[in-house]
Write a protein that binds this DNA or RNA. Structure first.
Length: 369
RNA sequence: AGGGGCGUAGCCAAGUGGUAAGGCAACGGACUUUGACUCCGUCAUUCGUAGGUUCGAACCCUGCCGCCCCUG
């Protein structure tokens, strides 16, 4: 059985969401001999009614679940308030990006600014040697390169390396990912063996602060109406083919919700903030050869100085595709794919891999048509 | 006004006497720690309307309504 020994291997703060993964992560670290402290980040204050159902990562049930697990494991447990920071770095970013005709990835922003920046600092301030999360990903120190490297998880279906490409060497040096070598199935079994009540808790999904999975409604409620203006749907020839409700409600590659009966499936090819237009086309018109990305972080090496062959991943659920990345004079990175990719979307992250190794990544700023 | 054509679901559209294809859109579900994509399911007791012929009509006939084209 798990016992809290004196932490021969160091003190680690585990970010506990109340879910299976972070709960088992804490348990595994305990077994390995770390001194474990559980912390739940309170990041979002849901409207009374919209909460609780499935227990978002910040709902009361989440905190209660996490606290129970901590009790069960016999570790200290605290709740820390990150609501203001989350509102700024994640929610504001999320809405502003949509308003500008880009498509944000809030999970990446949360990992970057909340978990691995703010929580990280507070943990270090508490005298912790490490921070740990329930992400499915591997963090390994490479002697030859003298760098900490990030690798895809053993369980490829659960791999979350895409959402962690922003991690710096300083962060990686003091971060533990106990789940990297396990499959989700094993983790659930482990939770059951430990007698954790969260063993059968469903996987979380969707955006944690958009509990009904309707981000359009979320924007409608939070943004001043005059910031979302209706405009024209244009075909790729520039002809007006209909009216849209506002750029913020559309994203590249989208099919549903356009309301355009053209006889063939119509997809959003691009958003044009200049004209406040949504460009629509056929399926084949949404495939593009490359992109420019900015705001990079490289993990496998300090910086990109010459063209490198990689497999680039354009969205969370994409299969990495062969591409060549090369540095541009303006600091951006040019990514040219071997084969055209579907719905390359400004605002989304592009993460570069070499096999299981995360080379680095950036934010897509422009699509090369 | 005269001549011709058309009127099938939200859009396009097949069906010309035997009891309403299909596509698009929409809606519902599955999938999913981002938005999307994808997949599965649902979607006209009724064919502009009123009569008539027929065992039986969206399909044939007649009136009316609406729209389009041509002529003057």
């Amino acid at each position: 059985m798990v016992t809290n020994n004196s932490g021969k291997k160091g003190k680690v703060v585990v970010a506990m969401s109340g879910g299976v993964d972070s709960s088992v992560a804490a348990a595994l670290l305990l077994e390995e001999g770390y001194e474990v402290i559980g912390i739940t980040m309170q990041i979002w204050q849901p409207d009374e009614e919209e909460d609780e159902r499935n227990g978002g990562c910040c709902s009361l049930t989440a905190v209660n679940d996490a606290r129970r697990v901590a009790d069960r494991l016999g570790i200290p447990y605290y709740v820390m308030n990150f609501q203001d920071l989350f509102a700024e770095k994640v929610i504001d970013y999320f809405t502003e990006e949509y308003l500008q005709g880009r498509t944000p990835n809030p999970c990446i922003a949360c990992n970057r600014y909340i978990k691995f920046e703010s929580l990280f600092q507070k943990a270090m301030g508490l005298g912790a040697d490490y921070i740990a999360t329930g992400h499915y990903v591997k963090n390994i120190y490479d002697q030859e390169r003298g760098r900490y490297l990030l690798y895809k998880a053993e369980d490829m279906t659960k791999d979350q390396s895409y959402a962690l490409y922003t991690m710096t060497q300083e962060q990686l040096a003091r971060t533990l990912f106990p789940l990297g070598n396990y499959t989700k199935t094993v983790i659930r079994q482990k939770a059951a063996e430990l007698g954790l009540l969260v063993a059968d808790k469903p996987d979380s999904q969707e955006i944690c602060f958009v509990t009904d999975n309707d981000y359009k409604r979320f924007l409608r409620q939070r943004v001043e109406p005059d910031r979302i203006k209706p405009g024209n749907f244009l075909n790729t020839q520039g002809e007006i083919i209909g009216r849209h409700e506002g750029l913020a409600y559309y994203t590249v590659g989208q099919r549903k919700g356009l309301g355009l009966a053209l006889g063939y499936p119509a997809y959003v090819v691009a958003l044009d903030p200049e004209k406040n237009a949504v460009i629509v086309g056929r399926d084949e018109e949404v495939f593009q050869q490359g992109l420019y990305a900015e705001d990079h972080n490289f993990i496998a090496f300090p910086e990109l100085t010459e063209p490198v062959e990689v497999e680039a991943k354009i969205r969370y659920s994409a299969i990495p595709a062969p591409a060549v990345i090369s540095p541009e004079a303006d600091g951006r990175v040019k990514v040219i794919f071997q084969d055209k990719q579907r719905a390359i979307t400004p605002g989304q992250a592009v993460v570069y891999y070499q096999g299981d190794l995360v080379v680095g990544g950036g934010t897509i700023s422009e699509v090369i048509f």
